[in-house]
Simulated scan of single mutants.
Amino acid sequence: MHVGLFVTCLVDMMRPEIGFSALKLLEAAGCEVVVPDMQTCCGQPAYSSGDRKAARDLAEKFVNEFEHFDYVVIPSGSCGGNVKVHYADLFSDDPALAARMARLAPRVYELTDFLYSVAKIEQLPCGKNGFKGAVTYHDSCCGLRELGVQAQPRALLDKAGVQVTEMHDSRACCGFGGTFSIKYGDISSAIVDEKCANIHDSGADAVVLGDLGCMLNIEGRLRRTGDDKTRVLHVAQVLAGDA
């Protein structure tokens, strides 16, 4: 399978090691992986803020760069949801681009969904002795509600021999929401405080998730409130044996 890996701008700028873990996993699944050099942002911040022109320009750039791959894989539920679900809206006034996106959309996958549902990976780089200690899993809003990602990461963690202890309200928002956390800081902080309390109550050594926005928000709040022990890990890092 010829796979285009869309790294995402947050991974590129903040946690590039997640991109390398994703690459390791895709290659372990037998994929021929290409990371287009000129990729940038998927346009989600602009789209969510109402800047349709900037979002559309980035969406068209994405289609031009990725439509020739067999599959496009994204280690982020929010970016994946933006591409797979919302590009159709951005191209609603352009039949030609809308048709190209309609052909591309079924081939766009969040990382764990692709590994589990399409590649059906058998041998994970971490082997059967993955992360040592208990983990709990946070379901990101976009990955869960727009892409249906919930069982897939848990099944892969189980294959890796990682014990998952479910927290209360694992499906609840972490409070990030992109620019929401900037515009409504007090509300965002209250939401992430609830998430952190649920993580602590689970007794897990680490919280694992599939979206870097959530990851940075939760980790930042844990550290600012004095927790320097609970690890916050992207699921790709755990499955690749890089945690």
Rank of each mutant, 00 (worst) to 15 (best):
A102R: 15
S181F: 01
Y116C: 05
K120P: 12
V73A: 07
A28Y: 03
A46M: 12
H2M: 15
I199R: 06
H68W: 14
D70A: 13
Y184S: 00
T225G: 01
E110H: 09
Y184L: 01
P125A: 04
T136K: 07
S189Y: 01
K195N: 11
E17H: 02
D51P: 10
K229P: 12
G178H: 09
D37Y: 14
I218V: 02
Q163M: 14
L111Q: 08
D37M: 15
A190N: 13
P95N: 07
E67I: 07
A190F: 07
I182C: 06
L212V: 06
R154F: 01
P95C: 07
L216H: 13
G210P: 02
R56A: 14
V149N: 11
A22Y: 07
T225W: 03
T40R: 12
L144Q: 06
A102P: 15
S181L: 01
M38D: 04
Y137L: 13
G19W: 05
S48F: 13
L111K: 04
D12Q: 06
F20N: 05
K120D: 15
S189G: 14
K183P: 03
K84T: 10
E67Q: 05
F6L: 05
R221G: 00
G213A: 10
A55L: 03
C31N: 07
C126T: 13
A197I: 06
G133S: 06
L239W: 00
D93C: 13
A134E: 14
M215Y: 04
L156T: 00
Q39S: 11
V85P: 03
K53V: 15
K132W: 03
L10T: 13
V108D: 05
H138F: 03
K195S: 11
E65C: 07
A119S: 10
V83Y: 04
K53C: 12
P106Q: 06
A204W: 08
R154Q: 02
E146S: 14
H200C: 08
Y71Q: 08
P106L: 02
I74F: 03
M14Q: 12
F66P: 01
E146Q: 15
S188D: 15
D242T: 01
H86G: 02
L115S: 04
G130H: 04
L209D: 02
D201Q: 13
D37F: 14
M1K: 08
K195I: 10
C126R: 07
T112C: 02
R224I: 11
T225H: 03
L104V: 10
V33P: 00
G178F: 08
L124Q: 04
A88Y: 01
